[in-house]
Nucleic acid binder design. Structure first.
Lengths: 219, 219
DNA sequence: ACAAATTTTTAGCTTTGTCTAAATATATTT
DNA sequence: AAATATATTTAGACAAAGCTAAAAATTTGT
């Protein structure tokens, strides 16, 4: 598989998660930053190779083989992201571009050993699940902390209110993107929560909880 | 610079170390595993870009800019080799192929941080010097331990006699490829040596010393 | 249901890096 | 120094992956 083929497969995979029907060449073109006509060409090639299902004008979807391949690329990408953040002190938002290159390195041994070095992580720095070597993959959902089930765990991935006072509050309380948060209790009276961050319990109001996005395990 | 251009520059650099005159397209073709005619095409392009000096039928050499670029690629390659051996437990002889891919990843920040993670190593697992970020580079020479100057240090990189008894002897005495060896004393009477390995002194006969290759610093 | 708008595909061209076969320079031998 | 051998370059072609412009299919609006 060429690098370009791998990129197409990866993007079709990501688009396919939200869309149940065939993915349009237009949508792919937008993501790949290329023209729809180029996509048509490539999609035909991928179809000939048995990686996607394609019928003219009807959009594209991955075959089981294509999906397996896509999962492997996503696995590489996310493992490298963990490496960059954990071992090389990249920050959260600097890793994507580099991981985009590293994901194409071809060596099964390399990925196995990298996985081991990192302690077999299950999630990347953005809170997204890392597919296993065998291709198991359980997507995590982004949701508001206030809507998360009790006793669930997740990673803080974003804010709804990005006003200065709110961000200041988060900073003061050591709540940062990428942090693991466990939802312990909900007080029905005022909708406030008790959560655990860094092995410390803390109490947050409903207003805070309704403005923090987490990536939670499906429970 | 494309990946292919980088590979040409790298190979011209390596060939240029032994050869003082222009490098022939034939020699490059052999190393690149391609045809001389393809080399001619590429070499013209590199010449247009100011990376090599080229006159028809007269061979090729790197310009200062080309050399700088080559050193950067060699630096990447060797740093990745150190990473693979030190951090991922690759063995000595498994690293080249993977490093060949990793060397082309484009991110200055990545290499800086990798360098730091590895503790700013000066030599790769094969005992070859790693060019500095600034492009300083002092080549190491492979020579027999028996011919190394006193008080010099080097890395064991090969054997001249590869018979089973010799290899067995090395194994028994914990002398392995990749090991750092310091030459302490030479006994003129029988040509034997006192060397230091792993902070322990040991005595070896001239016969052993004349069959071990080291990469030594130029002194 | 039919015209208009949009999406998708086709056809033909470009660039990069390669190849083969033929032509031309250089090197070697006698 | 001429003849032969070897090395190098040129010319023309090809595959990959992209583009533009035009044609065809699908979807939308009335």
């Amino acid at each position: 598989m060429t690098r370009s083929e791998e990129n197409y497969i990866k993007i079709i995979f990501h688009l396919g998660k939200s869309e149940k029907k065939g993915i349009s060449t237009n949508a792919i073109a937008k993501q790949m930053d290329t023209k729809p006509s180029s996509v048509t060409d490539m999609v035909k090639k991928l179809s000939d190779k048995g990686l996607v299902n394609y019928r003219k004008y009807q959009g594209v979807s991955l075959t089981p083989v294509g999906r397996k391949k896509a999962l492997s690329i996503v696995r590489n990408h996310r493992l490298w992201e963990v490496f960059l953040v954990e071992k090389l002190d990249f920050s959260w938002d600097e890793v994507h571009e580099v991981a985009e290159q590293l994901e194409h390195i071809k060596s099964e041994q390399l990925i196995d050993k990298l996985d081991k070095l990192l302690g077999f992580p299950r999630f990347d720095p953005h809170g997204d699940a890392i597919p296993t070597k065998e291709g198991e993959f359980k997507e995590r959902i982004k949701q508001l902390l206030s809507e998360a089930p009790l006793n669930s765990m997740g990673i803080c991935v974003g804010v709804r209110d990005s006003s200065a006072p709110f961000l200041k509050f988060l900073d003061k309380n050591n709540i940062a993107l990428g942090q693991t948060i466990k939802v312990l209790e909900k007080e029905e009276f005022d909708g406030s929560f008790i959560i655990e961050i860094d092995k410390k319990k803390m109490h947050i109001s409903n207003q805070i909880a309704s403005n923090l996005y987490l990536k939670m395990d499906e429970v």
